[in-house]
């Protein structure tokens, strides 16, 4: 009877949930977590250069699934985190390193190395006892990231989804020059013309990109197992196998490997709300997303820096402005 009363009490109160949004250069990911941090909903969408539209699209899809849930906290991350934060009314806007580390440590609590490869960037995060100890992001080169693999798959006529399994069929991977994405491509063309089998070339490419990653992003880092591989490229079994070979250790790919940034953002939002002692989320609500949002920019001529200042409008109201070096446009 007591339990029944409890249930009845619950029915009147919506279940609490947390929304995480990761706006990256290639994909925009949204997740809804329950109070225990388990994934209730997840969406993986292409950003297609229009982050506002894709956030609106994603939120419309989630609105139905999330009915009956109360958004207790909203977090954003990724290169579009500020934009997403303003549009959604986020409680927490965090960089993608922190977000990925937090998500990884939740899924694999004893993780000591996170390899994250996304659409245009790659990172390595070293953790000890669940805390970030060291990290790095790619700086000068995007070889090995999703965009490059996409492009090479297209050129070889292999659907990107089959790229990994094809690599696994290789018996003798060829050696591809992996220092530079452009030279890797010309080397692959050369190997094709020499008559090497396509699976050996694809496997060789994976090995070259892993070498490139370990020499650039992973340089000087204390890589220890357990190693977790996440980000869109973790779907590629060939890349995973090449990492396992190079590091001589098994590599774990979490179930929600391609939305880990969004999961981290949601977890960080929950943490933030908790730290400020509860209270309502700043979330604008699902309906607000149907408003007309527009981003525009102008060049400030106040000094020779000629900063490009970005205006974000909701309807006719300017809700955010950024981009000036001196900060004079930041308040409005």
């Amino acid at each position: 009877m007591v339990e029944m009363a409890g249930m009845a009490g619950m029915a009147g109160m919506a279940r609490k949930a947390y929304l995480g949004v990761d706006v990256g250069s290639v994909s925009t990911n949204l997740v809804v977590l329950d109070e225990r941090g388990d994934v209730l909903e997840s969406l993986y969408l292409r950003t297609r250069g229009d982050p506002i539209a894709v956030i609106q699209e994603g939120m419309r899809t989630l609105a139905q699934a999330a009915s009956g849930l109360e958004m207790a906290g909203v977090g954003t991350t990724g290169s579009g985190r500020r934009l997403a934060g303003v549009i959604l009314g986020a409680d927490c806007v965090k960089n993608e390193i922190t977000a990925h580390a937090v998500a990884s440590a939740r899924v694999v609590p004893d993780v000591r190395t996170v390899i994250e490869i996304g659409g245009q960037d790659s990172k390595i995060i070293i953790l000890r006892d669940g805390a970030v100890l060291d990290f790095a992001m790619n700086t000068v080169c995007a070889a090995g990231t999703g965009s490059f693999l996409d492009q090479q798959a297209g050129r070889l006529g292999v659907p990107i989804e089959r790229f990994g399994e094809l690599a696994l069929m290789s018996t003798t991977p060829v050696r591809i020059a992996g220092r530079c994405a452009v030279f890797a491509e010309s080397d692959m063309i050369h190997k094709q013309q020499m008559g090497h089998r396509i699976e050996d070339i694809v496997a060789g490419l994976c090995e070259a990109l892993v070498r490139n990653y370990l020499n650039n992003v992973g340089k000087g880092k204390d890589i220890r197992p357990p190693v977790v591989f996440q980000g869109g490229v973790a779907a590629n079994a060939g890349m995973r196998a090449a990492f396992e070979k190079a590091l001589a250790t098994p590599i774990a790919v979490p179930e929600h490997y391609n939305v880990m940034g969004a999961i981290g953002a949601a977890l960080l939002a929950a943490e933030q709300v908790d730290r400020r002692g509860g209270g309502a989320s700043r979330f604008r609500g699902f309906q607000a997303l149907d408003m007309d949002y527009a981003a525009s920019s102008f060049e400030c001529k106040g000094c020779p820096n000629l900063c490009e200042v970005v205006n974000i409008k909701m309807g006719h109201e300017v809700i955010a402005r950024w981009g000036s070096r001196c900060g004079k446009w930041d308040s409005f």
Binding site: K94, I97, T98, V132, L133, M137, T139, R325
Partner: peptide
Amino acid sequence: DAGVITRLEAFVDMVERS
């Protein structure tokens, strides 16, 4: 600036969380 800001934020987060 964007790349630098992301790295600085991540570094400060790391320091503060520890």
